[in-house]
Measured scan of single mutants.
Amino acid sequence: ITGDVSAANKDAIRKQMDAAASKGDVETYRKLKAKLKGIR
C-alpha cells in the first residue's frame, strides 16, 4: 500500500513540477524536487 501512495505522490509532484517549470517558477520547482527526493 505504501508503494502505491508514494507512486501517486510522485506523479502528482511531477505534474506540479511541470506546471512550475512552464511558469518559470524556479523556487517551487526546487521545493518539489526536494520533496521527490524525500519520498524515495
Rank of each mutant, 00 (worst) to 15 (best):
I1Q: 11
I1R: 05
I1P: 10
I1D: 09
T2I: 11
T2K: 12
T2P: 13
T2R: 10
T2A: 09
G3D: 10
G3I: 10
G3V: 12
G3Y: 07
G3R: 06
D4F: 08
D4Q: 10
D4A: 11
V5Y: 09
V5R: 09
V5D: 13
V5M: 12
V5G: 12
S6Y: 08
S6F: 12
S6K: 08
S6W: 10
S6E: 13
A7V: 10
A7T: 10
A8I: 10
N9Q: 11
N9H: 13
N9L: 15
N9G: 09
K10E: 15
K10R: 14
K10F: 14
K10Y: 15
D11R: 09
D11S: 09
A12N: 07
A12Q: 11
A12W: 13
I13A: 00
I13M: 03
R14V: 06
R14Y: 09
K15R: 07
K15V: 07
K15E: 08
K15P: 01
K15A: 12
Q16I: 03
Q16D: 06
Q16T: 01
Q16A: 14
Q16C: 03
M17S: 02
M17C: 00
M17G: 01
D18I: 15
D18F: 15
A19F: 07
A19R: 06
A19M: 09
A20K: 01
A20D: 00
A21D: 03
A21G: 03
A21E: 05
S22W: 05
S22R: 13
K23Q: 08
K23H: 04
G24N: 03
G24R: 02
G24L: 04
G24V: 01
G24Y: 02
G24K: 04
D25Y: 00
D25N: 02
V26D: 06
V26N: 07
V26M: 15
V26I: 12
E27L: 05
E27Y: 03
E27S: 02
E27T: 05
E27A: 05
T28G: 05
T28D: 03
T28S: 06
R30V: 06
R30H: 06
R30G: 02
R30L: 14
K31G: 01
K31N: 04
K31M: 08
L32H: 01
K33Y: 11
A34K: 10
A34H: 07
K35Y: 14
K35W: 12
K35P: 03
L36T: 02
K37S: 10
K37H: 13
K37R: 08
K37M: 12
K37P: 04
G38M: 07
G38F: 08
G38W: 09
I39T: 05
I39Q: 07
I39R: 03
R40C: 15
R40G: 14
R40N: 14
